[in-house]
Simulated assay, not measured.
Amino acid sequence: MTSAALDAPPALSAPPVPPPVRRRPRARRWMSYLTFVALAGPNVALLVIFVYKPLLQSFQYSTLQWNIGSPTARNVGLGNYVDWFQDPRTPEILTTTAIFTVATVGGSLVLGLLLALLLNQRLAGRGIARTVAFAPYVLSGIAVGMLWLFIFDPRYGLMSTVLAWIGLNSPDWYNDGPWALAMVIIVYLWKNIGYVALIYLAGLQAVPQDLRDAAALDGASSRRTLVSIVLPLLGPTTFFLSVTTLLSSLQSFDIIHAMTKGGPLGSTTTLMYQIYQESFVSGRAGYASAVATILFGILLVVTLVQLKFVERKVHY
Rank of each mutant, 00 (worst) to 15 (best):
97 T>G: 12
46 L>H: 08
164 A>H: 10
87 D>C: 03
160 S>G: 12
134 F>N: 02
255 I>M: 05
123 L>C: 01
243 V>Q: 01
128 I>P: 03
267 S>D: 06
40 A>S: 11
94 L>G: 03
233 L>D: 08
287 Y>E: 08
54 P>C: 02
169 N>R: 13
276 Y>G: 05
288 A>Y: 03
68 I>R: 09
208 P>S: 14
119 L>K: 03
79 G>C: 14
94 L>K: 04
278 E>R: 07
226 L>H: 04
14 A>G: 10
16 P>Q: 06
266 G>P: 02
17 V>P: 08
304 L>D: 00
33 Y>R: 12
98 A>I: 12
172 D>A: 11
21 V>W: 01
64 L>N: 07
67 N>A: 13
228 S>T: 11
232 P>N: 09
167 G>Y: 06
213 D>G: 07
220 A>P: 04
68 I>S: 13
18 P>T: 05
24 R>L: 14
67 N>G: 14
26 R>M: 08
262 G>L: 02
180 A>Y: 05
5 A>E: 15
208 P>Q: 14
168 L>V: 09
28 R>M: 05
153 D>I: 00
104 T>F: 13
231 L>E: 08
176 D>F: 03
111 L>A: 11
67 N>Y: 07
19 P>C: 05
150 F>W: 10
243 V>S: 07
132 V>T: 05
142 I>A: 10
310 V>H: 02
208 P>D: 14
180 A>E: 00
51 V>R: 11
310 V>R: 00
222 S>V: 11
299 L>F: 01
85 F>G: 12
307 L>K: 01
125 G>S: 12
298 I>Y: 00
2 T>I: 06
136 P>E: 03
272 M>F: 04
300 L>A: 14
310 V>A: 05
197 A>T: 00
182 A>G: 15
282 S>Q: 13
103 A>I: 05
310 V>N: 01
23 R>K: 13
289 S>E: 01
135 A>W: 08
105 V>E: 01
5 A>Q: 12
111 L>F: 09
219 G>N: 09
135 A>C: 06
312 R>G: 10
298 I>H: 07
57 Q>T: 13
142 I>G: 03
68 I>E: 08
110 V>A: 12
6 L>A: 14
213 D>C: 06
49 I>V: 15
184 V>L: 00
113 L>N: 04
293 T>V: 15
237 T>L: 09
208 P>K: 13
246 L>I: 03
188 Y>F: 06
51 V>H: 12
208 P>A: 13
85 F>C: 12
9 P>I: 11
240 F>V: 14
274 Q>Y: 10
284 R>H: 13
128 I>W: 15
146 M>S: 11
98 A>C: 07
63 T>G: 11
117 L>Y: 04
277 Q>A: 12
273 Y>F: 13
260 T>M: 04
208 P>T: 14
127 G>P: 09
